[in-house]
Each structure stands twice: as structure tokens, then as C-alpha cells.
């Protein structure tokens, strides 16, 4: 009961708070200076959310079902259905439609949508000229581009290769069924999970900025950036595989008097090898994609050339880079899908 109420009130509070805020925006039409007053505006926003929470409580008390209630009501309440009502006759239906509509209108202004720019004849002429140049590649730079593209593939490969054994060990530390049995283990499990989530929420391109300063610009920085991201991602994916293993063989091996490491090696590892390989190849595939653009921030690979040519508006050269990247990504995509299909 408790968690469902908190979830519902949080959801509705933010939803209604947003609606109230937009409403206030419409009434007071603040100027640019007022819009940038962050501390004051945050207070107003918070006030709106609190108001939204109160509103959600009152409305649901009156027996009207809000969207939050619809989403988070516990199962035993959900099954009680009266005669079906068309969505636009319900409060939650209006609530959803209203929110989406308001978001669209706001989004139109915030993203500065301008259809006239798209249809402007001069602009279209410009872009056609660009496409024409891209489509007539300057093949003289092809050897450079191919070399750098190969560098990208190897940046991705090395990052994946080094990440695998590290993630392999960490995946057991961050698997609930292995660590969750003792209080100390559970604490380690929680810490590992949190660390991986933080590491993953920082994009490789940010890591590349850090490593480009640390070990200087170049492919090594890019490799380290992808390595950090790969360790976090693979650990998470591996540990989810470990959490899905069949407990039977574990009990079987334990019953022979085997030790902890023996049990993991004989009962868990055989069950996870193939999924691990599958995820690893997929990670390499993803890393190749990232390695092609990581050069933008000094991480080496073909991205360096893309940045170089684009800065100088050498569109015929950019055309070569785009083509080579497309081919490599396409090849890796197919290769990884092909191998993963085979070992399923």
C-alpha cells in the first residue's frame, strides 16, 4: 500500500506540477531575465509539484482515477474493472492527452521549430550542393581514411578484450544470487552496482575528454575511454546472466563438498559461457561505432579525420569518411549478428 501511494503521488505530483507551471507561464509571461532566475524558478516549480501532490490526493479521494493511480495501483485493485469506458471520458485519459499536447506546444518553441527554413529555396540549394560534393568523394584521401578506420576497429577491439576478464570477475561480485546471501556480500553487491551505473551514465565521449588530458590525445586515450565504459556495461550484462543461471547444478556441485571457486567454475561458468561470448561480440560491435566518433574529442581513429575535414569544409573528403564508416559499421553489425546467431 505504502510504496504504491508514494509512486502514484510522485508521478501525479510532477505531472500536475508541470501543468500548473505551464499555466503560470501563460498568465505571467515572464521576460528572458526572469526566466533565467534559476533559484526563484526552482522554488516556484517545487511549489507547483507540492500543489500537484495535494491535487492528486484530493482527486483520488473523490474516487476519480488519475494517471498515476492507473499506472501504479496494486494488482488486486487493477483487476476490479467496472464497465469499460472510452479513454477520453476518463480523467486519466484527459490528463494524458493534456500533458502530451502541452509538451508538444512547449517543445515547438523550445526546439525553435521553423518549417520555413526547411523549405527555403536558398537553403535547399545549399544542401544540394553539399550532397553533390559528398557524393563525389576525393579518393586521394582513401588510404588515410582506411588506415584510421582500421585504427578505430582496433581501439574497439583492445577496449573489449581488456574489459572481458575484468568484467568477468566483477560480474560475480555484482550478481545478487552469488553475493546476496550474506549481509557483507549484499553491501559489496550494492556498491558494485552503483559504481557501474555511475560509470555507464558517463558517455564514452566524456571519458575520452578526461583520458585525452591524462595520456594525451590519440588512440590510446580513446581505447581507455571505451574500456571504462565497456567494463561497466559488460559487468552489468554479465551479472544479469549470472543471476539467471539454473540453481540446480549449483546445488549439485555443492553437495559433492566442493569449495566456493570450484562451485562457480563447474556449476555457473558452463551455463554462462555462450551468452558471455554473445554479449562480448555485441560490445565490440558497439565499441566500433563509438570508436568512429571518439576522435572528435581526441580519442584517435577515423573520427579525427572527420573533424579535420569538416572544420575545413572539405566535403569531398568528408564524403569518403562517411562512406568508410558506413561500410565498417555495416560489416561489424552483420558479423556480430551472424556469429551471435550461430552460437545461440
Amino acid at each position: 500500500m505504502g510504496t504504491h501511494l508514494i509512486k502514484r503521488v510522485t508521478f501525479d505530483g510532477i505531472n500536475f506540477g508541470f501543468l500548473f507551471l505551464v499555466f503560470l507561464l501563460g498568465i505571467f509571461t515572464p521576460n528572458e531575465e526572469e526566466l533565467l532566475n534559476l533559484s526563484k524558478n526552482s522554488l516556484v516549480a517545487l511549489g507547483c509539484v507540492v500543489l500537484g501532490v495535494v491535487f492528486s490526493l484530493i482527486i483520488n479521494k473523490m474516487g476519480i482515477k488519475t494517471l498515476g493511480e492507473l499506472l501504479f495501483a496494486p494488482p488486486h485493485k487493477k483487476t476490479v474493472t467496472s464497465t469499460p469506458v472510452i479513454w477520453y471520458r476518463t480523467f486519466w485519459g484527459i490528463q494524458t492527452a493534456g500533458t502530451v499536447l502541452l509538451m508538444s506546444v512547449l517543445g515547438y518553441f523550445v526546439t525553435e521549430v521553423n518549417v520555413r527554413e526547411v523549405l527555403d529555396i536558398e537553403n535547399i540549394k545549399n544542401v544540394l550542393r553539399l550532397i553533390e560534393q559528398l557524393a563525389t568523394p576525393n579518393w586521394e584521401v582513401l588510404p588515410d581514411v582506411v588506415w584510421k578506420a582500421i585504427q578505430s576497429v582496433f581501439i574497439a577491439f583492445m577496449a573489449t578484450l581488456i574489459a572481458v576478464p575484468i568484467a568477468f570477475l566483477l560480474s560475480f561480485v555484482s550478481a545478487k544470487n552469488i553475493m546476496g546471501t550474506t549481509p557483507v556480500g549484499f553491501v559489496i553487491y550494492m556498491m558494485a552496482r552503483t559504481l557501474f551505473n555511475i560509470m555507464r551514465s558517463i558517455e564514452p565521449i566524456m571519458w575520452a575528454i578526461i583520458f585525452a588530458i591524462w595520456v594525451r590525445f590519440g588512440p590510446f586515450a580513446g581505447m581507455l575511454a571505451l574500456l571504462v565504459h565497456s567494463i561497466a556495461s559488460l559487468s552489468k550484462q554479465y551479472s544479469e546472466i549470472v543471476e539467471c543461471v539454473d540453481e540446480g547444478p549449483i546445488e549439485g556441485i555443492e553437495s559433492t563438498g566442493a569449495g566456493f571457486l570450484q562451485t562457480i567454475w563447474f556449476a555457473v561458468v558452463p551455463q554462462i559461457v555462450l551468452p558471455y561470448i554473445s554479449f562480448t561480440i555485441y560490445r565490440w560491435d558497439i565499441n566500433v561505432r563509438m570508436a568512429t566518433i571518439i576522435g572528435f574529442v581526441g580519442g584517435g581513429g577515423v573520427g579525427e579525420l572527420l573533424l579535420l575535414y569538416q572544420r575545413q569544409s572539405l566535403w569531398n573528403e568528408v564524403g569518403v569518411v562517411i562512406l568508410v564508416i558506413a561500410i565498417i559499421v555495416w560489416l561489424m553489425d552483420n558479423f556480430s549478428a551472424y556469429v551471435r546467431e550461430a552460437i545461440k
Binding site: G252, A258, F266
Partner: peptide, 30 residues
């Protein structure tokens, strides 16, 4: 204790991907 009191299970609890002999040898792990 586990080594001296062996156990068999309803669902056999073998390592399915391993050969029969490798499964039997796990009895010698202790």
C-alpha cells in the same frame, strides 16, 4: 559432511553442457 553424505536430486542437477565423465569426476572435487 557433504562429501561423506552424497546426494542425488529430483532434477538430477548435472552440468548439462559437460560430458558424462566430467560430471562424474565432479564427485572428486573435494
Amino acid at each position: 559432511v557433504r562429501q561423506r553424505m552424497a546426494m542425488i536430486f529430483q532434477h538430477f542437477n548435472l552440468i548439462e553442457r559437460h560430458s558424462v565423465i566430467k560430471n562424474v569426476l565432479t564427485g572428486a572435487l573435494s
